[in-house]
Amino acid sequence: MATNGTSDLKRKQGIVSSLCKHFSLDPKAFSSQVPGNDIKTLYINILKSSGKESPQNNDEVMKWIAFADSFPSDSKACHGGLNELNTDLAKKSVLLGNGFTPSEADVIVFSVIHSSMIALSTPEKEKLPHVMRWMDYIQNSEDLGALFEKILLEKPVFEPQIAKAAAKPEVTSSAKGTVQNTKIADKPDTEKNAKKSDSAKKAKGDKEAVPEKKAPEKEASDKDKELSVSLLNIQVGLIRKAWKHPSADSLLVEEIDVGEAKVRQVVSGLAKYCSPEDLTNRRVVLITNVKPGKLRDVMSEGLVLCASNEDHTKVEPLLPPEGAKPGECISFSGIDGKPEDVLNPKKKQLEKITPNLFTDEKGVATFKGIPFMTSAGPCTSSIPKASIK
């Protein structure tokens, strides 16, 4: 590792202190081990003392330990490693762990790169937005303030989402304003008609005034609700079995585990793009509150969401990250709401929502640019800038 003895010792002391805090151990018990051992050995000794077994993703932990061990202490030489880390963090919240739960790998890498990040200028930090976001999350979630100088982070990343969230009330307000203006404009006519004859006032006043005032408000409310992705119950599924549709060459039938007592049978138009073998044991994203119905005499109880390029020559199901559990619901940051029990085909909710579903330039599935999130990270596709249906 390209560093002198003093900085190497200080770096390992920081790793031991943060790992001991992570595992709720006393770092003094390991202080004598720091000078004569590398990062890997220190980690193994601390893990054994914690009484915890090696994680299932131990190979990934070792990969990040190797990254930490080879990370240069020279601030000028560290940019390559930081750029690599920034790219890796673009699609996930933590290096390893269950979605948003930091792992020992996160703690080790944080400890190693901290001094380099502190030394960067503001413009240099702005070029590493994902690393900065991750550093801020680790230092707060692991409560490392007493061990490391706090990295201050301005958070402009959230501004676009706030702007999007604010856009809906503006539209709603405008819609309500239009309804109110219409009422105001109609009122004089009603009054004029009322003055013309008492009989007209009795005939039209009760019948026309009440329905016309209430109906537009209800329609505006329904419209807003239909445009929200929260209307859809989107879940992670695992295809247990797939086969060709008995009477349609373009269709496949899948049995999908969504964490319920019984698997769901779903018919998908994927026969041109995937074989049954390709889909078996594959994770997918599906809408589970569509109205069940038969497709060519075979019952379908869901809709598998797929990404498609512009000319539809390439189509593939969205892929939840490894670690996402069958049945867990997809979430969208800043968007809350309870999904419909069953979507009403007559309201055409899907037709109004799907134009806002697409993958970004990195293949991350989004609703209006907000990622499809699971406990293990975002759902993705190998097709960037694709439509999702």
Rank of each mutant, 00 (worst) to 15 (best):
S111K: 04
V236Y: 01
S17I: 08
Q139Y: 04
A2E: 13
I151V: 13
P371I: 05
N281V: 04
S199Q: 12
K207H: 09
V284R: 00
F100V: 11
S331E: 10
K362H: 14
S18K: 04
L303Q: 05
H114M: 08
G363W: 04
I383C: 05
L343Y: 01
S31W: 11
K76S: 11
E124D: 15
D297L: 07
G81K: 08
S49H: 14
Q265V: 09
M373Q: 13
T122Y: 08
R282T: 09
I162D: 05
K195C: 11
N233D: 15
R240E: 13
A203N: 08
T122A: 10
P321C: 05
A68I: 09
D297W: 06
A163G: 04
W64P: 00
S275D: 11
K21F: 04
C329H: 06
F110C: 05
A167H: 08
E124T: 07
K214F: 03
S24F: 07
Q33M: 14
S228F: 04
K125E: 12
L305S: 00
D38Q: 15
I330T: 00
K368E: 12
P102D: 08
A271P: 03
E322D: 15
E84C: 10
K294Q: 13
P211H: 08
L231F: 00
K196Q: 14
A77C: 07
I353K: 00
D222L: 14
P156V: 09
K127D: 12
